[in-house]
Each structure stands twice: as C-alpha cells, then as structure tokens.
C-alpha cells in the first residue's frame, strides 16, 4: 500500500502542481488572445478583470463556505476608496497600492465576517445586505473621504515597477491586471485544496460533522471572510488604479447582486466557475448592451433563465459533466 502511495507521489512529483501550471498557461493564453483580438477594448477587459476578483471573493465565502451574502461589493468598494485615498495622499506605487487594497479588503472582510458568519440562512443574508447598505450610505455621506456622489477622482498611480507607465490605450493596466489575476488565481487553486480549504467545504457540507472532528467553525468562517476580503480588495485596488476614479457604484447593492448572478452562471464552489461566469456575463453584457441599448436587460434576463434551467449548477459543472460522459466513449473507441 505504501509502495503504491509512494509511486503515485513520485509520479505526481515529476510535474509539480499540474493543475496550477495548466491554469497559468491557459490564463496567459486567454489573456494574450484578449490582447490581440480586442486591442481597442483593453480598458473594458481591464475592468472585467477587476470584477473577476470580486466574483472569486464571493465564491470563497458562498461557493466554498455556504455563506449567503449580498454585500460583497462593500468590501470591494471600501478597498477601492482606501486605494484612491492612499494614491491621492502620495502613495503612487501600483504594487504598494495593491497591498493597501488587499489589507483594506481583508480588514473589511473580517469585520463583515464577524457579523455575517455568526448566523445562517435568511438572517445571514439580511445582515450582509445591511452591511452593504451601511457602507453605501456612509460612502455617500462621507464626501470628504469618498467624494460623495461625484466620486473620488484624480487617482493617478505611478509606473509599474518604476518602469511601465499607465498609457491611454490601457496596455499597461491590462497586462498588470492580468499578471496579478494569474498569480492570485494560481495561489487560490492551491489554497482551496489545502486542508483549510477542504475544511471550509466540509463546513459547508455539514457543519455539525465538522465540529465533531474538532473544527472551530465560526473562527474558520471569519478567517475565510478575511481572505475573501483580501481578494475583493485586490479587485477594488485594480479598478481604482486603472480607471482613476472610484464612484458609489463600487459599493452598490446592484453590484453585489450582479456578482452573485455571475457566480451562479459560472458555477459556485469552483474557482473556474467564478472566473468563467464573470467573463461570460460581462462580455455578454458589454456587447449586447452596445448592440441593443433598449432591450439588453431583457435579453440578459432570458439568458439567465436559460442558464438556470439547463445548467442549474452553472456552466463549468455542466461542461465537466459533459466531458465526463463523453470521455469514456472516446476512450473506448480509440
């Protein structure tokens, strides 16, 4: 038995972290494709990446821990405002600003987690909405910090690594965002398979059973909220850095709801689901709203109904199950 395990370990050690390497290559290729195919839409693709972080962060708490929340954009927005203010105060290094966003997001995530993770079901959902609304109201009132309804403008970060200036075409912003996304995504792929990540999934499956194996459920959920906040914070930071402005839409309820929709489309509980759901939704929204400005919401609603009817667990789990069904047949033929 131990020989077999050792043999499998040796086999897997030939290529360390194959899933992560695969993800890295796939995302780099997809990013390159985006750069080549949509050279005039790089600003859109860069904004899209910012939102991908938000959806990933939601997946960590909702998909992996089973926490119902509609207040995730509050974390994203707080981080974006923190980065905007830091930049206006003179901290212009984009990497340092990312750090500011990450820390602000983590702190906001932990604070939200302390409240929201204490409860389950509807009270949890209502609390998450309340936190989001509270942050949105404060963002509107504290205009000296947030710019109020005018937004926080004039955010002008310095060159990346002191070399690459943010250009008008958005090339630097796009590449910078893509690199950060690939790094964070690969780290998250490892993280969700770690004993801690597995424990979070176990808590989602059966929190009582998790307690019976010695898990401290509430602290674990708060910690996951903090990590999720850091991820959302990176998204908020990238959005502030790339757009140069942070508005009230960053903390809006609509953004939280949209984020949940993107996660449902892609498939909750899988990082690829969060990634693909957010990309599909935003590209669809971008092009359909441009093609039909009057009825795009109707078309979007129809698309959602179709997805939920035919792929209730999301596009990625659907694709995986289709591949699982087809692969043995193809293998049999060959």
């Amino acid at each position: 038995m131990s020989d077999r395990l050792a043999m499998e370990d040796r086999r897997s050690s030939r290529l360390p972290f194959p899933a992560e390497l695969g993800a890295l290559v796939a995302m780099a290729l997809a990013g390159l494709l985006g750069y080549l195919v949509f050279p005039d839409d790089l600003a859109f693709l860069t904004r899209l990446i910012g939102i991908v972080f938000l959806v990933l962060s939601l997946d960590l708490v909702t998909g992996y821990c089973g926490i119902a929340t509609l207040g995730q954009s509050a974390i994203f927005g707080v981080a974006a405002y923190a980065v905007g203010n830091a930049c206006l105060a003179g901290l212009v290094d984009p990497v340092a600003l990312l750090g500011v966003g990450m820390v602000a997001g983590a702190v906001m995530g932990l604070a939200s987690g302390v409240l929201v993770a204490k409860f389950q079901g509807l009270p949890q959902l209502v609390l998450s909405i309340a936190v989001g609304q509270l942050v949105a109201a404060m963002a509107n009132k504290l205009s000296s910090v947030t710019g109020g309804s005018d937004g926080l403008a004039g955010i002008s970060p310095g060159p990346v690594l002191g070399i690459f200036n943010f250009d008008l075409y958005g090339r630097t912003g796009y590449v910078f965002s893509l690199v950060v996304l690939v790094i964070v995504f690969v780290i998250l792929l490892r993280f969700v398979r770690s004993p801690f990540g597995l424990l979070c999934r176990a808590i989602k499956d059966d929190s009582l059973r998790a307690r019976m194996i010695g898990a401290r459920v509430y602290p674990r959920l708060i910690l996951m909220y903090g990590i999720s906040g850091a991820v959302a914070g990176i998204g908020g930071a990238l959005t502030a850095i790339n757009t140069g402005v942070v508005g009230l839409d960053s903390v809006s309820f609509e953004r939280s709801a949209e984020t949940l929709v993107m996660l449902v489309i892609g498939g909750a509980g899988t990082l690829w689901g969060a990634l693909i759901g957010s990309v599909v939704f935003q590209i669809f929204e971008h092009y359909v709203s441009a093609a039909n400005p009057f009825h795009w919401m109707t078309i979007l609603g129809l698309m959602l109904i179709v997805v939920v009817l035919f792929a209730p667990r999301g596009l990625v789990p659907l694709a995986v199950s289709v591949v699982d069904r087809i692969a043995p047949r193809l293998g049999g033929k060959s």
């Binding site: 038995m1 131990s2 395990l5 370990d9 004993p195 801690f196 597995l198 424990l199 999934r201 176990a202 989602k204 499956d205 059966d206 009582l208 059973r209 998790a210 019976m212 194996i213 010695g214 898990a215 509980g269």
Partner: peptide, 25 residues
C-alpha cells in the same frame, strides 16, 4: 456522516495539520 462533496482522500485529510501522507497510509 461523510462530507459528500469531498472525495474519500479529501474527507480523510480535511482539517489535518502537517504532513498527511503517513496518516493516509
């Protein structure tokens, strides 16, 4: 009670600290 969305191996290592290979063996 087993964690239904986890594989057998994931069920076994969930929440364990340190090296898991020996415990799995």
């Amino acid at each position: 009670d087993v964690f239904r969305s986890l594989t057998v191996e994931e069920n076994l290592v969930t929440g364990l600290k340190g090296r898991t290979t020996e415990a799995l063996e």
